[in-house]
């Protein structure tokens, strides 16, 4: 398994655990209003907001800096995976827009907590989609060449 492939797999697992944990926190707390009620939920979200880009940046930097860890084939796969990354973010935003419009259409206003949730979800889906794109890239290259 290539070093980049390993990192993508770890990122995918960490991302999935993080996503499930966040969903679990919101489900346990009841609903989206927990964000307004409970400051701890807010702090968890803020930690995610700061932690995810930080960890992602450090991991990317560590991977790309080591010359023997990454070569032209890996770079090609990374380039292709960015397509999956932005497509996932676009589809996520579309899903949020449609869902929030349909749910809150009559009230003509959306709870502020959704701003953070939208951002956090985009933040999580982006590296997740990239990891998935990288793993798919390796799988495709090994299969079809």
């Amino acid at each position: 398994m290539a070093p980049l492939q390993k990192r993508a797999l770890y990122s995918l697992v960490i991302g999935l655990v993080l996503t499930i944990s966040l969903i679990a926190v919101l489900v346990i707390q009841g609903d989206i209003t927990a964000f307004d009620r409970d400051p701890n939920v807010r702090y968890v979200m803020y930690a995610v907001l700061i932690g995810v880009p930080l960890v992602y940046g450090i991991l990317c930097d560590l991977t790309l800096r080591k010359p023997r860890q990454i070569d032209e084939r890996d770079r090609l796969i990374i380039e292709k995976s960015s397509r999956a990354q932005w497509l996932a973010v676009i589809f996520l935003l579309v899903a949020w827009t449609i869902a929030l419009t349909e749910i809150y259409h009559d009230e003509q206003q959306v709870p502020v907590a959704f701003l953070t949730l939208i951002f956090v979800s985009a933040l999580i889906i982006s590296p997740l989609a990239q990891s998935l794109g990288i793993l798919t890239g390796y799988w495709r290259m090994n299969r079809n060449g």
Binding site: R73, M141, N144
Partner: peptide, 22 residues
């Protein structure tokens, strides 16, 4: 050659065409 072992494996299996440089 300045690449990863996985790339050599892919090359030998005919599953990757290298750049001119490589």
């Amino acid at each position: 050659a300045g690449c990863t072992r996985q790339t050599i494996i892919a090359l030998e299996q005919g599953k990757y065409v290298p750049s001119i440089e490589l």
